[in-house]
Design a protein around this nucleic acid. Structure first.
Length: 709
DNA sequence: CATAGCCGCCTTTTT
DNA sequence: GGCGGCTATG
């Protein structure tokens, strides 16, 4: 069997696959066949007598887990190994040992939208101003604390300045809100599991005995909580194998600690280290440029990228006048590629921010090129989907106040704000949950007859659903959709409603699929699973479409032809990352570009636009400084109007004279100071009454001419 | 209590 | 430029 498994493996790959006992660090460069090595390793472990259920492999996304499971089975490994993400593993552990973790097993998992609502509530409850304490910032801070396993009490004792003390209050309040709702956010899943393992040696031993072999992929992107989890899990058997590439660490902002992989040898002094430096994916010219780029990072261990493929086409760097023409040019290029026989599904477009997908999408539609935007969570943030899911969540976890408040009057059933406020204050007085208060609506004196009966029938409906909530999910979801009145209310709003109904039907189909594929389908399990759904998980590789995704999503994937768009200063590197050279943030942006480039097997096309509309403002841009680090000569002058964008934006621009009055959508009234006639590209300098002076491109700027009367 | 329309907020990347 | 939340109105 070893022979069968080791076929077509290089010597270092073989070492990584067959080094069974003890800690192992696999430093794997891009395209080094790392995924292959891991799946082979799982098969080799089983082959050497390890029971499948004694293996736990942790991947970065659910999709990666699914693929790994399939590949391992295809290699002849019997199924049964636990392969999942850290978060899924935590859900499983926490559900099993809920009582020991001090939680209830039917907990809701709060996503970022839920988190935002809760943190806002917390900031408000602390009677703080949201301008001085912006909820998004507070959430980041709380998240960072949890990722570093700092609990409320220990943070309180160490908080010595005003800000920290305030943050401690918000943190405490936020946790109370979540606890009261029997909810855990993404960070809690890791946090609670790590503390469970720390505080319950019996649980730790039990899991350690079960998972005798632990494999962690993308180890460079683990955070402190995940690191601790790993340490606890392997404390008995010491069989830990991690793989990763410090040059591909792109989640520092989310708490990922690159030191975890850099210090692996210190943590496990008897560790074996295998380097996989050969690259089987990209052409030598792509690797050379990627290497030139990443070499600019100061804070790194130098590493080789050894090419194994024959030379391929040159990297193309194309400037465009603006993002519309960039999109148009991109789609035209893709058409040329496919006309020459390239497969549509083997083409990907990467961008730094999600908002850039819009203009690309328009061009794909216009040119009728099939595409998919890889953004899985978007579906779950639609109103109608959140509504139906809120109904289902309540059946499992009636304490989930966020879900309850969402549906109590959706569709409208005459339970308005005043009524809800009365019930809430009753609940607070009696120290019961909102749902319990609703159940006792009859006893709430402040309520008059009509709202009482409306509440009663709502509770009755929910209780009815609850009775039949065991078993498969899809039929229940369908029933809830109809009987809650959601379908009816959506039908009533016309075409948009039809669309919404379609979406819910899609959800029900997905639930049916879950029912089919799961041995014992349960609503709780289903809800907890879909809450851990990630963007790439929605990536459908079976259809022939161009994949559009963020650079972060691109991690772990590969394509024959890659297009990276919007490679401009301020976008990549993003302006929000500290723009000083060689700060940690700048280096992470560089790694992000590195990850994007090294996804390409043969065609790598980089583009940027000289003008880009950002949040409604047309801004002049400059090429990303990273472009000058690639060691490639390129021409900064766009092929003017090469790709004519047939749109109102390229209509004739007016001739303007100084002193002409204009009104700008954003800046208000202003006077023309100068008119630079460049035909389509005429520029005006406007002095606005607000005091600021702007130079604007006429074909983009939303300027209205005020007639002199 | 429902609805529409407006204001003001945020806006990097995601499990 | 988009969305959530708030307010004014029916």
């Amino acid at each position: 069997m070893q022979n069968a498994l080791s076929r077509q493996l290089t010597p270092s790959q073989k070492k990584a696959v067959f080094h069974i006992e003890g800690p192992l660090l696999i430093l794997a460069g891009p395209g080094s066949g790392k995924t292959r090595v891991i799946t082979h390793r799982i098969a080799a472990l089983i082959d050497s007598g390890v029971k499948p259920h004694n293996i736990c492999a942790i991947t970065f996304t659910n999709k990666a887990a699914d693929e790994m499971r399939q590949r391992a089975v295809a290699l002849g490994a019997s199924a049964g190994a636990h392969i999942s993400t850290f978060h899924s593993l935590c859900v499983r552990i926490l559900r099993q040992y809920a009582h020991k973790a001090g939680i209830s097993p039917n907990f809701s998992v709060y996503d970022d939208a839920d988190q935002t609502r809760c943190i806002k509530q917390a900031v408000k409850a602390c009677e703080l101003d949201t301008t001085n304490f912006p909820p998004a910032r507070m959430l980041d801070a709380v998240s960072a604390l949890k990722n570093n396993l700092i609990d409320v009490d220990s943070f309180k004792t160490r908080a010595d300045d005003f800000f920290s003390k305030t943050l401690a209050k918000i943190y405490a309040r936020y946790q109370t809100i979540l606890t009261d709702a029997n909810a855990l956010d993404f960070d809690d899943l890791l946090f609670k599991t790590a503390f469970l393992l720390r505080d319950c040696p019996d649980v730790c031993a039990e899991l350690g005995n079960r998972f005798k072999f632990l494999l962690i992929d993308e180890y460079q992107d683990t955070n402190h909580a995940q690191y601790k989890m790993a340490k606890y899990l392997v404390s008995t058997h010491n069989n830990i194998c991690v793989t990763g590439d410090p040059d591909q660490s792109i989640y520092r902002w989310r708490g990922a600690d690159i030191r975890n992989i850099l210090a692996f040898e210190k943590d496990w002094p008897d560790a074996t280290i295998v380097k996989l430096e050969e690259n089987f994916r990209s052409t030598p010219n792509i690797l050379q440029a990627a290497d030139n780029l990443i070499a600019a990072n100061q804070n790194r261990k130098p590493k080789k990228l050894i090419p194994t493929k024959p030379p391929g086409p040159d990297i193309v760097i194309s400037p465009f006048p603006d993002e519309m023409q960039e999109a148009q040019g991109l789609v035209k290029q893709i058409k040329e590629f496919t006309a020459k026989g390239a497969s549509t599904k083997d083409i990907a477009v990467f961008y730094r921010v999600n908002s850039m997908s819009r203009v690309l999408e328009e061009a794909f539609i216009e040119e009728k090129v099939p595409y998919q935007i890889v953004r899985g969570v978007e579906f779950y943030s639609r109103k109608e989907i959140r509504d139906i899911l809120a109904y289902l969540k309540i059946l499992v976890n009636p304490d989930d106040e966020l879900a309850l408040l969402r549906i109590i009057n959706t569709p409208a059933r005459g339970i308005g704000k005043t009524t809800i406020d009365k019930v809430r204050s009753y609940a607070a007085r009696q120290n019961v949950t909102l749902y319990d208060a609703l159940k006792k609506a009859d006893k709430i004196d402040s309520l008059s007859k009509s709202p009482k009966s409306k509440i009663t029938s709502f509770v009755k409906m929910i209780e009815q659903f609850k009775k039949d909530s065991a078993g498969p999910v899809a039929p229940l979801a369908e029933r809830v959709f109809t009987e809650s009145g959601l379908v009816k209310s959506l039908k009533a709003i016309g075409p948009d409603g039809r669309n919404a109904i379609e979406n819910v039907n899609e959800l029900i189909s997905a639930a049916a699929q879950y029912d089919d594929q799961t041995e014992e389908p349960s609503l709780l399990d289903y809800l907890q699973q879909i809450s851990l759904f990630s963007d790439v998980d929605a990536y459908d590789t079976s259809t022939d479409r161009v994949a559009l995704m963020t650079l972060h999503c691109a991690k772990g994937l590969e394509f024959e032809n890659v297009f990276i768009v919007g490679v401009e200063d301020g976008l990549l590197p993003h302006e929000r990352s500290n723009s000083d050279q060689n700060t940690d943030e700048m280096e992470e942006e560089r790694r992000l570009f590195f990850v994007g480039m090294t996804r390409a097997k043969s065609g790598l096309n980089i583009s940027y636009a000289k003008y880009r509309t950002i949040r409604g403002h047309v801004l002049r841009t400059i090429p990303s400084p990273f472009l000058f680090e690639l060691g490639i000569e390129f021409n900064d002058t766009p092929a003017e109007n090469h790709y004519h964008y047939d749109d109102s934006t390229s209509q004739d621009v007016p001739q303007l004279a100084p002193n002409q009055m204009v009104r700008h959508k954003k800046f208000g009234l202003g006077t023309i100071e100068e008119f630079i006639d460049m035909g389509q590209n005429s520029v005006v300098v406007v002095k606005f009454n607000s005091g600021q002076t702007k130079s604007l491109m006429l074909k983009y700027a939303p300027l209205k001419i005020i007639e002199n009367s």
